[in-house]
Design a protein around this nucleic acid. Structure first.
Length: 610
RNA sequence: GGGGCCGUAGUUAAGUCGGUUAUAACGCUGGCCUGUCAAGCCAGAGGGCGCGGGUUCGAGUCCCGUCGGCCCCGCCA
C-alpha cells in the first residue's frame, strides 16, 4: 500500500547524517539499498545522492513501522522519521561515512515500490555495458557514476566563475547553423520552411565566436554542445561538450596564460588538486621528434632517437632505402626488454603494422651480443654507434622504424605507449600537462592531392612564416597550440586570421575556390573587412577532461546519457524511423526503405513481481 | 570500409571429443531468525543457449549468414 508524501519534508540527506544529529529526530527520504531482516530487528540501508545510512526497525519499539519494514524490497522509495543514535559498541561499520550512527525508525511511509531490477545497484559492477546503457537511469543510481556527474557540475561552475571573473561573457550561439566544407561530417537538419535546404549542427561555434570578437564583445566563453558525425571511440561521442573561449587583442601567450589559470581553477575547485603553473611547453617539432606523436605522454622516457645518418650507410637495405627516399630511421630502447618473448615481439610487430609500418626490426642485447634478424647486416662499429645514440645496455631491447617521418614517428610513438603501459612505466595517479606549440599550418593530403589545414582554415600563420606561405606551405608554422594531459589532447586553439587578405590567401592555398569560399564563408570574409581585432581562443573537450580527472576509461562514464559505438541511445532507442507525414513536411523521400530492426531479444522485460 | 574480442536463467559465469532432463553463484519468491551491514539457515521458481539457415540420427558445442555490445585502424580541420 503506497502512501502520500503529504507534509513530510526531508530534514537531511542520508549521507549527511552526522554525530551532530545524535539524539534528534530526522526525516529521511531515499531508496532501499538493502534490507537485512532478522525476524526481530530489521536493518535497512537507505540511499540518496549523498550516501547511505542504516535504519533500524525494532518490533518492541514500534510494531507498526517494523511490520511495514518487513515488506520493503530493494529500490523501494521510502520516507522515514526516527532518532539518530550511536550504534552499540562493536557494531560500527567503518566502511560507511555514517557507520558510527544509525536511525531508530518510529514512522515510515512507502512512497513507491519497485519491480525487481535487471541488475543490482552495486559500486563494483560487472554487468555488461549494453545492459547498463539500456537501463541508464539505474546505472546512474550508482555512487560511482553520480559522483562523476557531481564533479562535472563543480567543474562547470568553476569554469563559469573563473572566466566570468576574468572578463569573459557567456553568450549562446546557434545550434541550427550552416554546413561548411573541411572538417568532420556534419549532422544535417532539413528545413521545412526552405524546402531542399539544410541546417548543420555545429562542429564547434568557431565562426560565431570570431564574429562575436568582430562585434566587440572582447571576451566570450560558452560551455557548449558540439556535433560531429564521425565514427566513435572511447574518447569520442557524436555530441560532446566544449569549454569554448575567445579573446581579442591577444597573442599566443595571453591565451595560454588565461587558460592555464582556468585549468588550475577547475582542478582546484573540482578534485581539489593544486597544479603547478606555468605548464611546460614543447614545440610540435620537438614533440613528434622525441615522442613520435603530437600528444606526447612525457611521464616516462623511452624517447625516439634518430639513426638516419648511421643507418643510411649500413648494409641493411631496408634502412638504406628509407634514408635514400627521404625517410628516416628511428628507434627506441626498451630497458630490460631483452626478456620479451617471441610472442611479445610478434604482438609489437602487429601493432607496428596496424599503424602503417611494413615490419618491425628488433634487437635484443644479450650476453652473446646482438640477437636480431638484422644483426648480420651491421658491423661492429655500426652496432656500437647505434647503441651509443640509444644509450643501450645489455638486457635492453631496441625497436626500429624505417619509413616516412610521420609513419616512423607514429609507429614508435604508439609502441612506446604500449610498452610503457605494459611495463608499468606510466603513473596511475597525477596530472601531467604540457602545451604543444608551433604546429604546422598545412599538411598535404595524398588522397585528395591538396593541402589541408592542420588546425582549421582560420588559424593565423606565425608572423615570421607569413612569406613562406605560397612558396613553402609545408614549412609555415601556425599560431596554434594544444593542451595535452597525460598524453591525451584535451584542448586546442589558435590565434585567428583577422585580415581578409590573409584569409583569402589561406583559402586559396587550401584549394577552396573563390566562389565556394564566398558561398560557405562569405559572411566571415565580409565581416573581416569591417574592422576585425586581432583575436584568438581555445576549446577544451570537457568530456575528456572529466574522464581523466575521474580516472574513467571512457567518456561515456562522465556523460549522463551517452551513445553506443554505433551512435545509438540504448535507453530511448534513438535514432528511430519517423512517420511518412513527417518526412513529407520536410520534403524528404527515402532512397530506399530502411531495413527492419530485428529485436535483439524478446524477453527483455524484468521479471514481474510475484 | 577493415581488424580483434564478446553474446548461455534477471545478473555474472561454467558447459569436455557434438550425445539422456543445460550447471553454479548472486538476485528473486516463501519460511525461520533480535545487532546485521555481500547478514545467516531451509525450501522453491526461473533459461533452451542473440536471431536465421545449414551439416548431422542428434547442435549451446561444427559451418554460413545476420543483429547487437566493446576495443582499435581508417575517419575525426
Amino acid at each position: 500500500m503506497l502512501e502520500k508524501l503529504e507534509n513530510w519534508r526531508r530534514s537531511s540527506y542520508c549521507g549527511e547524517v552526522s554525530s551532530l544529529h545524535t539524539g534528534t529526530v530526522v526525516t529521511l527520504m531515499g531508496w532501499v539499498q538493502r534490507r537485512r531482516d532478522h525476524g526481530g530487528l530489521i536493518f535497512v540501508d537507505l540511499r540518496d545522492r549523498e550516501g547511505i545510512v542504516q535504519l533500524v526497525f525494532n518490533p518492541e519499539k514500534n510494531g507498526q513501522a517494523h511490520k511495514k519494514a518487513h515488506e520493503l524490497r530493494s529500490e523501494f522509495v521510502i520516507a522515514v522519521k526516527g532518532v539518530v543514535q550511536k550504534r552499540p559498541a562493536g557494531t560500527e561499520n567503518t566502511e560507511l561515512k555514517t557507520g558510527l550512527l544509525e536511525v531508530a525508525i518510529d514512522e515510515i511511509k512507502v512512497l513507491n515500490d519497485s519491480d525487481p531490477l535487471p541488475f543490482m545497484i552495486e559500486e563494483d559492477t560487472d554487468v555488461a555495458e549494453n545492459t547498463r546503457l539500456k537501463y541508464r537511469y539505474l546505472d546512474l543510481r550508482r555512487h560511482a557514476l553520480q559522483s562523476k556527474l557531481i564533479l562535472r557540475h563543480k567543474v562547470a561552475m568553476s569554469t563559469r566563475s573563473y572566466l566570468s571573473e576574468s572578463g569573459f561573457l557567456e553568450i549562446e550561439t546557434p545550434v541550427l547553423t550552416k554546413s561548411t566544407p573541411e572538417g568532420a561530417r556534419d549532422f544535417l537538419v532539413p528545413s521545412r520552411l526552405t524546402p531542399g535546404s539544410f541546417f548543420a549542427l555545429p562542429q564547434s561555434p568557431q565562426l560565431f565566436k570570431q564574429i562575436l570578437m568582430i562585434s566587440g564583445f572582447d571576451r566570450y566563453f560558452q560551455i557548449v554542445r558540439c556535433f560531429r558525425d564521425e565514427d566513435l571511440r572511447s574518447d569520442r561521442q557524436p555530441e560532446f561538450t566544449q569549454i569554448d573561449a575567445e579573446m581579442s587583442f591577444v597573442d599566443i601567450d595571453d591565451v595560454i596564460g588565461v587558460m592555464e589559470g582556468l585549468v588550475a581553477a577547475i582542478f582546484k575547485d573540482g578534485p581539489g588538486f593544486e597544479l603547478q603553473l606555468p605548464f611546460p611547453r614543447l614545440t610540435y617539432a620537438e614533440a613528434v621528434g622525441r615522442f613520435g606523436l603530437d600528444n606526447p605522454d612525457v611521464r616516462f622516457g623511452m624517447e625516439l632517437k634518430d639513426l638516419t645518418a648511421i643507418a643510411s650507410k649500413t648494409g641493411f637495405k631496408v634502412f638504406a632505402d628509407a634514408a635514400s627516399k627521404g625517410g628516416v630511421v628511428k628507434a627506441i630502447c626498451v630497458k630490460h626488454g631483452a626478456e620479451f618473448s617471441r610472442k611479445d615481439l610478434d604482438d609489437l610487430t602487429a601493432i607496428a603494422v596496424s599503424f602503417g609500418a611494413k615490419g618491425l626490426a628488433w634487437v635484443k642485447l644479450t650476453d652473446e651480443g646482438w640477437q636480431s634478424p638484422i644483426a648480420k647486416f651491421l658491423n661492429d662499429d655500426e652496432k656500437a654507434a647505434i647503441a651509443g645514440v640509444l644509450g643501450a645496455a645489455k638486457g635492453d631491447l631496441l625497436l626500429f622504424a624505417a619509413d616516412r617521418f610521420s609513419i616512423a614517428g607514429t609507429v614508435l610513438g604508439r609502441l612506446r605507449l604500449n610498452i610503457g603501459a605494459r611495463l608499468g612505466l606510466i603513473p596511475k595517479q597525477g596530472f601531467n600537462f604540457i602545451w604543444v606549440t608551433e604546429f604546422p599550418m598545412f599538411d598535404y593530403d595524398d588522397a585528395e592531392k591538396r593541402h589541408v589545414a592542420v588546425h582549421h582554415p582560420f588559424t593565423a600563420p606565425m608572423d615570421e612564416d607569413l612569406d613562406k606561405m605560397e612558396k613553402e606551405p609545408l614549412k609555415v608554422r601556425a599560431k596554434a597550440y594544444d593542451l595535452v594531459l597525460n598524453g591525451v589532447e584535451i584542448g586546442g586553439g589558435s590565434i585567428r586570421i583577422h585580415r581578409s587578405d590573409v584569409q583569402a590567401r589561406v583559402f586559396d592555398l587550401l584549394g577552396i575556390a573563390k566562389e565556394e569560399a564566398e558561398s560557405r564563408f562569405g559572411f566571415l570574409l565580409e565581416a573581416l573587412r569591417f574592422g576585425t581585432p586581432p583575436h584568438g581562443g581555445i576549446a577544451f573537450g570537457l568530456d575528456r577532461v572529466m574522464a581523466i580527472m575521474t580516472g574513467s576509461d571512457s567518456i561515456r562514464d562522465v556523460i549522463a546519457f551517452p551513445k553506443t559505438q554505433k551512435a545509438t541511445d540504448m535507453m530511448c532507442d534513438s535514432p528511430s524511423t519517423v512517420d511518412q507525414k513527417q518526412l513529407d513536411e520536410i520534403f524528404i523521400r527515402l532512397a530506399k526503405k530502411a531495413p527492419e530492426k530485428t529485436p535483439e531479444k524478446t524477453a527483455e522485460k524484468p521479471p514481474e513481481k510475484a
